[in-house]
């Protein structure tokens, strides 16, 4: 059992690396094409949508932004506030709700979980409609709140956190906290949250990406130019079918993706490094 470096093992290793590299290439190509297209002119793109060779239109594409009053920094700022707010609320309250579902034995627990599951199966869009109407009525258009606060109730994240907690939570830890005299809320914040780091990082990435790329609801709610998010700004570049500034659109898409990379790389260490479950070891 100890002699695992036999020849088939080596072949196996080669297979692993080859497939990983192939998959990696497959993942990177579209980004590469997108970035290359950001440097190409609209007509170059029209006559040849896919190219691997950069061109020289980067600055003229950027100039299109100015003509369309597209300010990427304003877009970044707005998108950042919304996405960060929504992500923090979503992971924190989902963890709390999941903890309530796993750690406590209460009468309506099963019913509540079933409710969350049912809610999750309704296409999320169905919910957003009346929500929009409601926001319109109470005058919350052109506000970030309707894009941030609903993240408190994120059924899919709760479901994930619950599944994760069931697999990992040992109530001994909770108890040791109680013996030390800590309050329930304190235990959650100080003991449970650190245990959940990998799950939180995972869901934070997903939540951030979803919020960052979200286009429809912001585009309807935020009609004031100074509040526009990145995806809204890009849609302004599209205009109608015969006048799309493709080069600028790709540049906009590239700029939009960059912050996502940063967030992803920052959070991915929790996924990659395999942060040990601090609380478990006694």
């Amino acid at each position: 059992m100890r002699h695992e470096t036999t020849i088939p093992q080596k072949i196996y290793k080669v297979i692993i690396y080859v497939s990983c590299i192939l998959l990696a290439i497959l993942s990177i190509i579209p980004f590469y094409i997108m970035i290359v297209n950001a440097t190409r002119g609209t007509y170059e793109i029209q006559s040849n949508a896919i190219s691997l060779i950069p061109s020289k239109f980067l600055s003229s594409n950027y100039k299109v932004f100015e003509g369309k009053s597209f300010n990427p920094f304003v877009g970044f700022y707005n998108s950042f506030i919304i996405s960060t707010g929504a992500t923090v609320l979503s992971v924190y309250f989902s963890s709390l709700t999941a903890y309530a579902l796993v750690a406590y034995n209460w009468k309506l627990r099963q019913a509540f979980f079933t409710f969350i599951m049912a809610v999750m199966m309704v296409p999320g869009q169905l919910l957003s409609v009346g929500f929009y109407q409601f926001m319109y009525r109470i005058g919350w258009t052109n506000s970030y709140l309707p894009l941030i606060l609903p993240a408190i109730a994120a059924p899919m994240t709760v479901f994930f956190m619950r599944q994760y907690l069931i697999g990992t939570l040992s109530l001994d830890i909770v108890n040791s906290g109680r013996i030390d005299g800590a309050g329930e809320f304190h235990i959650f914040n100080r003991i449970i949250l650190p245990i959940m780091k990998p799950a939180i990082a995972t869901q934070a990435i997903f939540a951030f990406v979803a919020s960052w790329n979200n286009y429809f609801m912001p585009s309807i709610l935020l009609t004031n130019k100074s509040k526009y998010t990145m995806p809204i700004m890009i849609s302004q570049l599209k205009g109608d079918i015969y006048k799309t500034e493709y080069g600028a659109v790709y540049l906009g898409l590239t700029l939009t993706v960059l912050p996502l990379f940063l967030v992803y790389f920052a959070l991915s260490k929790y996924i990659i490094a395999g942060v040990a479950l601090g609380g478990v070891k006694e």
Binding site: Y99, Y104, N105, W106, K107, F134, L149
Partner: peptide
Amino acid sequence: AKYGYIFSIPFVLAYIVFQ
């Protein structure tokens, strides 16, 4: 048990208000 209810309140409230 009561903490089960307490900790679920934010979710339920947000859900009812928005969705």
